[in-house]
Design a protein around this nucleic acid. Structure first.
Length: 469
RNA sequence: GGUGCCAUACCCAAGCGGCUAGGGAAAGGUCUGCAAAACCUUCAUACAUCGGUUCGAAUCCGAUUGGCACCUCCA
């Protein structure tokens, strides 16, 4: 079986074939660490994690590189805007380096809580200024740059396929269509972009480095090109990001990368759709935004959010609401309960051999490998969980196998612990009251046990007690 | 102005030319002193509207309506 992926470049689903036989070079656009990640950001990382898990499950080795953008770039003010990190640093009265460190740590806390597999290499922009400068030099040597008003620009007219990823209609586009964008008069073509800044209208930045063009800082797009090529080579397999990156960020990355090397840079481009809130797109700039911490405050676990995200295809917009998160939570709990009862029953990992089990496995793989159809994959998981005709060991084994791709930590579910003696004493007392038909006392003891976190279940063959999940 | 995406039951959401999505909620039932849990049953001859193509369309084409995103902050 093979992995099929939707490639934004071709706008179609293609069979994935890596350049090297078994090893995949994967670059995912990382966070800009000037604030907490909101759950919309996290959705994209979850999609990328699912991609990686499916590649691993399909037998590939994945060399995964993710950047940390710790140079702040622009606030939305054109190419001459204030640095986001800088602004936050000012607000918090800390250095930009402290801000970057703090939010990097916070980011990985969320990353781990959502059970995402850490990248092979995490690289900070500020550690790779040299590689960026080298790349700009190469572009300069090949005649793709010009200097104007103190900044080094990439000239999009120096290449003939600018905008191929986004299929931009350069003639029909409005420049500076948003009101908050200022036109930069130093540009020869309005779509040109800055490779290196030496001048900002906000004055000197805390983060500045010497360069052949003067002391300054890199443009927004150069870091991903420089670092991905540094770690994965001048051509590699997959580059991912949010859908918003297509028209500008990835378009410019492709322009400068391919202009520098003369080669095709990336073979497969994958983009995750946005998570929306009631008002439309989530934004950090609006001030208040949804974070994982906020979901926890509402009584949800990070994996509830993971389940919610898996319930929709990564290329569909998903409108977030606490109601749908609640639905995800209920569903995930029931899966957890089912797995726990398998474990309590002594289910063991085994080798899948029955026809029915093999059919389920194939079904799952077919869906998950077909452009990461996680909703359909979940449906297969449910079928297995509910299929009483399958042996317990095979059922359990399948569930764990599916979870390699889904990442719901079903493998961490353990058998119930032994009930402590004092709880057992109360339980026995309650059983005696029940036997004596002293309903009042019996019910009181049941609620007392419930308060202590234990559920009493009255069955046909007597009562049982277990710890509440 | 340009580019792209989407409209499926009470809610979330797959499917992308013929054959069952799935989950949540709800209702009824089994069990029970009562609960809880679990299990069983019910829950669209549906797929925004109108045309067209086809033996056959939610799935393809066209038009219409409504919604969303992007066009130098953004995942």
């Amino acid at each position: 079986m093979s992995v099929q992926l939707y490639n934004t470049m071709s706008r179609s689903i293609e069979t994935f074939v890596p350049a090297k036989e078994d090893e995949v070079g994967l670059y995912t656009c990382g966070p800009t660490v000037y604030n907490y990640a909101h759950i919309g950001n996290l959705r994209t990382f979850l999609f990328e994690d699912t991609l990686k898990r499916v590649l691993l499950q399909s037998g590939f080795t994945v060399n995964h590189v993710m950047n940390i953008t710790d140079v702040g770039h622009l606030t939305g003010d054109g190419d001459d805007g204030e640095d986001k990190l800088q602004r936050m640093a000012k607000e918090q009265q800390q250095s930009v380096w402290d801000i970057a460190d703090f939010y990097t740590t916070a980011f990985f806390a969320d990353f781990d809580a959502l059970n995402m597999i850490r990248p092979t290499i995490v690289c900070k922009a500020t550690d790779h200024i040299e590689q960026m400068i080298d790349l700009i030099k190469r572009l300069e040597e090949r005649g793709h740059t010009y200097t104007s008003g103190g900044n080094v620009y990439f000239s999009i007219d120096s290449i003939d396929d600018y905008g191929k990823l986004a299929r931009l209609d350069l003639e029909g586009m409005q420049n500076a269509s948003r009101e908050d964008v200022e036109v930069d008069d130093h540009k020869r073509n309005p779509k040109d972009f800055v490779l290196w800044f030496t001048r900002s209208k906000h004055g000197d930045q805390e983060m500045m480095w010497p360069s052949p063009w003067g002391r300054g800082f890199p443009g927004w797009h150069i870091e991903c090109s420089a670092m991905s090529m540094h770690y994965l080579g001048e051509s590699f397999d997959i580059h991912c990001g949010g859908i918003d990156a297509i028209p500008v960020h990835h378009t410019n990355e492709i322009a400068q990368s391919e202009a520098a090397t003369g080669k095709e840079w990336v073979k497969y481009w994958l983009h995750g759709e946005f998570l929306l809130d009631d008002t439309g797109k989530m934004s950090k700039s609006k001030g208040e935004f949804l974070t994982l911490a906020l979901l926890k405050k509402h009584g949800f676990e990070p994996l509830d959010y993971r389940y919610l995200v898996l319930g929709a295809h990564y290329r569909s917009q998903l409108r977030f609401s606490f109601q749908s998160l609640k639905m995800a939570q209920s569903a995930r709990r029931r899966i957890g309960e089912a797995v726990r009862s398998m474990v309590n029953g002594g289910a063991q990992r085994t080798t899948i051999s029955s026809d029915a089990a093999l059919a389920y496995r194939d079904d799952f793989l077919t869906h998950i490998q077909h452009d990461l159809n996680t909703p359909q994959a979940l449906a297969v998981l449910w079928s297995v969980v509910k299929d009483g005709t399958l042996g317990a060991d095979e059922r359990y084994t399948l569930v764990l196998y599916f979870d390699q791709a889904l990442g719901l930590r079903l493998d961490a579910i353990e058998a119930d612990e032994e009930i402590p003696a004092d709880i057992m004493a109360l339980f026995d007392e309650r059983n005696r009251a029940k036997a004596a038909k002293d309903w009042e006392k019996s019910d009181a003891l049941r609620s007392e046990l419930a308060q202590k976190g234990y559920v009493v279940k009255d069955g046909q063959s007597g009562s049982s007690i277990e710890k509440k999940m």
